[in-house]
């Protein structure tokens, strides 16, 4: 296997690891449920794609690559649906989102429920 493939695979894996950790930190740092959902979105879309693409470059064996593509497609199709269902259930059960006050930049001042 060429070193170019090895290096690009390592690069994808490292970027994916960084994005995953960023998403995890975002889940801990953001003030309310709805904004945490966006942080989870980062780990679900680009981080998962990067890690799986990095794994695809590791092993150029056709069935394994097909299975990795299947996992990627399942992740990309399932997670928006789950996020939407979660947000809809939360809003319908009167979980009020923490909104930015219009105009001036004082987001997160009344973060009482976090």
């Amino acid at each position: 296997m060429g070193t170019v493939v090895e290096i690009s695979s390592g690069f994808f894996l490292l970027v994916g690891a960084f994005l995953s950790v960023s998403g995890g930190v975002g889940v801990m740092r953001f003030p309310d449920f709805y904004s945490r959902m966006h942080a989870v979105g980062v780990t679900d879309t680009l981080a998962a794609s990067m890690i799986l693409i990095g794994l695809m470059l590791q092993m150029p064996e056709s069935l394994v690559v097909v299975k990795l593509i299947l996992i990627l497609l399942l992740t990309l199709f399932i997670n928006p649906t789950a996020s939407h269902a979660l947000a809809k259930a939360a809003l319908h059960n009167n979980l009020a989102p923490l909104l930015d006050k219009s105009g001036d930049n004082n987001a997160g001042d009344d973060s009482s429920n976090s």
Partner: peptide, 11 residues
């Protein structure tokens, strides 16, 4: 995320 919770404006 790395700028912190103060930099976002949820809408």
């Amino acid at each position: 995320i790395w700028l912190g919770g103060r930099s976002i404006s949820p809408t």
